[in-house]
């Protein structure tokens, strides 16, 4: 009778050991970053893994002197917030139409939309740039915001979720004389909050962390985002000031990590939803 009990607890201990080792390996690079942000560049070169002999903030003060961090932060914010708001609103509208309004031609448009999801994004890279360049948008935020205002993927995600809302709710509102805009605002929008949270989280994260888009379209330093600023800055910092790089990476990572810890359940669900909707 004792044997199964003992073998279970052995394997459980092993399970926790492996999980803990894994967690340390995942966390360590972040620790490395934050730890070095409180050292001097000289100390980082000589003993990169040691704890700071003396905690210093020169990395943080230095990077604010060298770089307009607040401007980069503001630029990243402008882009991420506007792209997120537009995507949430537009995918909610389109998702509702595809899920609940039986307009003639709907299934054809939806089918076509799914087909466009299969086209790899790399194909659009050059021709989109040519088009946006010819519009004269290069160097302006609209070059990044307008083309990403709504994504097929987000519409699909919302539509799948809204299809699960009972038709009777929509029909009942219709019999009461409500039009589609009212039904959308009063009935559907409150019920679709989990799906819209998923869209908002994924879109914000994607846009906040995006590097390629800003690299392509924002050629003036006063428009640069945090990601772009970091890469450009990294190339100009001499080795003895490397603490500034670690201060900057810590500052970039902090906001999203803070948000993550508050709504991590939604974060994780957002990614799980993506696979379940398929």
């Amino acid at each position: 009778m004792m044997r199964p009990f003992r073998s279970i607890s052995y394997s459980l201990v092993l399970t926790y050991m492996v999980l803990t080792l894994g967690a340390i390996a995942v966390i360590y690079p972040f620790f490395f970053m934050v730890n070095n942000s409180f050292k001097t560049g000289r100390e980082i070169i000589h003993s990169p893994t040691a704890l700071p002999s003396e905690v210093t903030l020169i990395g943080y003060t230095g990077v604010f002197d060298e770089l307009d961090v607040l401007l980069l932060f503001k630029n990243s914010m402008i882009l991420a917030v506007s792209i997120t708001l537009l995507n949430t609103l537009l995918s909610a509208l389109a998702g509702y139409a595809f899920a609940k309004i039986p307009f003639p031609g709907r299934d054809r448009i939806f089918g076509f939309m799914l087909l466009t999801m299969m086209i790899p994004g790399v194909l659009f890279l050059i021709p989109s740039y040519v088009f946006i360049y010819n519009l004269g948008w290069v160097g302006h935020y609209q070059a990044l915001i307008i083309p990403s205002a709504v994504s097929v993927f987000n519409i699909f995600l919302v539509r799948q979720f809204m299809s699960g809302i009972p038709d009777e709710l929509v029909e009942a509102a219709r019999i009461d004389g409500a039009g589609d805009p009212t039904i959308f605002l009063r009935v559907i929008l409150p019920l679709a909050r989990p799906a819209l949270a998923t869209v908002a989280i994924l879109t914000f994260m994607g846009s906040w962390n995006d590097f390629f888009g800003p690299l392509l379209y924002l050629n003036q330093p006063e428009h640069w985002t945090l990601q772009l600023g970091l890469l450009q800055f990294r190339g100009t910092v001499p080795g003895e000031n490397s603490e500034q790089i670690w201060a900057l990476t810590t500052l970039i990572t902090l906001p999203i990590v803070v948000v993550y810890f508050f709504i991590q359940e939604q974060f994780v669900k957002a990614f799980a939803n993506v696979s379940l909707s398929k």
Partner: peptide, 21 residues
């Protein structure tokens, strides 16, 4: 807790992670 930790790199930007890496 474990899930929270394992998910941390997912939400961090590629440029930051590559700088650390």
């Amino acid at each position: 807790l474990f899930r929270t930790i394992y998910f941390l790199p997912v939400i961090t930007s590629t440029v930051v992670l590559m700088t650390i890496g």
